[in-house]
């Protein structure tokens, strides 16, 4: 007892400081480092960009429009059979600057300069010219953290616009991602556009993600495809945040998926057959449309 008291007499300050430091660090961790991210935003405010430069994003925009068109054409063919056809409307989004990247080297994240004060909530969908970027996983009053689709931890249900075959997409920490299909022999080929599927938990159906650049049919369980993500994730400067709401999911309503074998293909968009053979990833534009 005497020893303990003597130790305390000598080291009380250190012990109190140590406990305080640990407690504060735990507090910061539990709050998802909210005030640190806010401090980062304040510190880097002079570096934030003005309006997005349109010319840089033109290429990606063209790609996105092309994919959207393909998706709409394919959907049109199926919607003719549905009575309760609902027109897809553009959803009002919140334009946000990208102010930071991931805080370590393993997570594919970005930090946005808009937060709850601007109406962004956890789970919101983040889009950029080109397609889906990711979804918001943490928010503070003026910042939000986005888990990118290129992160290996973010798995997204997808479908192929031409043939409506389904699978899920897994990021590879770079500009490509892999898709595993549920079917043993899906009708897919390089050049096919990939969009989010109706079975995706976090994303509304029909948002463009990317384009298939290669297929590996030798995978033992199900074939795997390599997808080039169409949003320029490594050079993002501005993104659009769509709040995660039932209205959003209704507006991007997915038609009833066609039965995979046989019936899906003849109904599919006739133009899709004119997609050129695999192109190098740098120039995924199709000249035929």
């Amino acid at each position: 007892m005497y020893d303990v008291r003597r130790w305390w007499g000598r080291n009380w300050l250190k012990a109190v400081l140590a406990v305080a430091a640990l407690g504060l660090a735990l507090g910061v961790r539990q709050s998802r480092a909210g005030f640190l991210v806010e401090a980062y935003r304040a510190l880097t405010l002079p570096l934030h960009l003005g309006a997005p430069s349109q010319s840089d994003l033109a290429d990606a925009r063209v790609r996105e429009l092309q994919q959207r068109l393909e998706e709409v054409e394919s959907r049109n063919a199926q919607l003719q059979t549905l009575l309760n056809y609902r027109k897809t409307l553009p959803v009002e989004g919140i334009a946000s600057p990208v102010i930071g990247r991931s805080a370590d080297r393993w997570w594919q994240q970005i930090t946005l300069g808009r937060g709850t004060a601007d109406g962004i909530q956890q789970g919101a969908i983040v889009m950029a010219p080109g397609g889906v970027v990711g979804r918001v996983t943490a928010v503070t009053p003026h910042t939000s953290r986005v888990l990118l689709v290129s992160d290996p931890g973010s798995r997204i249900g997808i479908s192929v616009t031409r043939s409506r075959y389904m699978g899920y997409l897994r990021g590879k920490s770079d500009r490509t991602a892999t898709v595993e299909f549920f079917d043993k022999l899906p009708d897919v080929k390089p050049g096919d556009a990939i969009v989010t599927s109706a079975y995706s938990q976090f994303f509304p159906a029909g948002l463009p993600i990317g384009r298939i650049v290669a297929i590996d049919t030798k995978k033992s369980l199900a074939p795997e495809a390599v997808v080039e993500l169409s949003a320029p994730l490594s050079t993002l400067e501005w993104v659009t945040v769509l709040p995660h709401s039932p209205e959003l999911f209704q507006q991007f309503q997915e038609p009833v998926p066609a039965t995979p074998s046989g019936s899906g293909n003849p109904k599919a968009n006739p133009n899709s057959g004119t997609n050129p053979a695999p192109k190098p990833p740098a120039t995924p534009r199709t000249a035929t449309n």
Binding site: A21, L22, V28, L36, W107
Partner: peptide, 17 residues
């Protein structure tokens, strides 16, 4: 080690737990 743990907790807060 104490310093390492505190720094690690902060970085966890900045990414994922």
């Amino acid at each position: 080690i104490f310093g390492g743990v505190v720094a690690g907790l902060l970085q966890d807060g900045m990414t994922e737990f």
